[in-house]
């Protein structure tokens, strides 16, 4: 059975397993890019020079991961479509066509990463949730049957190990710092908690019958939860009682924020299509 994948203005049938692999790769890339874009908003505006540099480093790592993943997705799409359509009428995809010419509905990132950066507390707590997810995810993805994904995970794993440590330390420091910082962190936790569930709830492209390529999120959920609980408790923070979890990002149903991120990010490419930069 062939499904349809819509990427930019291309809508074409691709066989199901390739379709799934492309969507999965794009999902991983979108997560990294959107959070990188958000974190880079701090560049030049950090609470202290040293931390300005630290958060910019994390933004750089994430954008680097996104690039590798988009490049791979572009290769997969180009290979798949070359078999079906005349190449000359359809320009090949690149990391940039995928980042700059897809609409909000085509982005498959989790809602968590598109939320506004908030104060430093929101930023480090979101980073901690996300980096912990990436840590366990890449740890598993290193063993993926897909060699490219495995190699990307291998390289990225080192980076996210550091991101997780850095952000966990900040969560603890601010949670257990002053009264004000504790209150801000608790507020950040109350705000962000409902967006964490989506990280570990499989989307359509994350359910694979034999589980050899994509990471089975159920297998990392316990580890993620344990790590989060351990750090939050050291930080003297309370997980909210409200169990409701937001979702939709993996299906392309986003918050209002993503539209603004994309219109800003994609502005030059869309204003001057066909230009080289």
């Amino acid at each position: 059975m062939a499904t349809e994948i819509s990427i930019g203005n291309l809508t074409q049938p691709i066989n199901e397993s390739t379709d799934q692999l492309i969507l999965y790769t794009l999902h991983l890339a979108d997560n990294a890019l959107i959070l990188g874009q958000r974190n880079a908003e701090w560049t030049g505006h950090g609470p202290v020079l040293e931390q300005d540099i630290a958060i910019s480093n994390i933004a750089l790592d994430l954008i680097g991961q996104a690039r590798m993943l988009y490049q791979y997705a572009a290769t997969l799409i180009n290979q798949a479509t070359n078999q079906l359509i005349n190449h000359s009428t359809n320009p090949a995809h690149t990391e940039d066509t995928l980042a700059f010419f897809r609409t909000g509905a085509e982005y498959k990132n989790c809602l968590l990463v598109e939320l506004p950066r908030g104060d430093w507390g929101v930023t480090v707590l979101r980073q901690f949730f996300f980096s912990t997810y990436q840590y366990f995810l890449y740890h598993e993805l290193k063993n993926s049957a897909d060699e490219t994904l495995a190699a990307i995970a291998e390289k990225s794993f080192k980076e996210v190990t550091y991101h997780m440590r850095w952000s966990a330390e900040w969560v603890i420091r601010l949670g257990d710092g002053t009264e004000e910082s504790h209150d801000r962190m608790q507020k950040a936790l109350d705000q962000l908690w409902a967006y964490t569930g989506e990280l570990l709830t499989p989307g359509d492209f994350e359910t694979e019958p034999d589980g050899k390529i994509v990471v089975d999120l159920r297998s990392i959920k316990v580890a993620w939860t344990n790590k989060i609980q351990e750090v939050l408790s050291t930080a003297t923070l309370q997980i909210p009682e409200n169990k409701w979890q937001q979702s939709g990002g993996k299906q392309g149903r986003h918050t209002e924020h993503l539209g603004y991120i994309l219109s800003e990010m994609q502005y030059l490419q869309r204003t001057y299509p066909n230009a080289q930069w």
């Binding site: 202290v48 002053t178 910082s181 801000r184």
Partner: peptide, 9 residues
């Protein structure tokens, strides 16, 4: 805006 962060650390 970074004051509370530096103080908490």
């Amino acid at each position: 805006e970074g004051a509370w962060v530096r103080e908490a650390a």
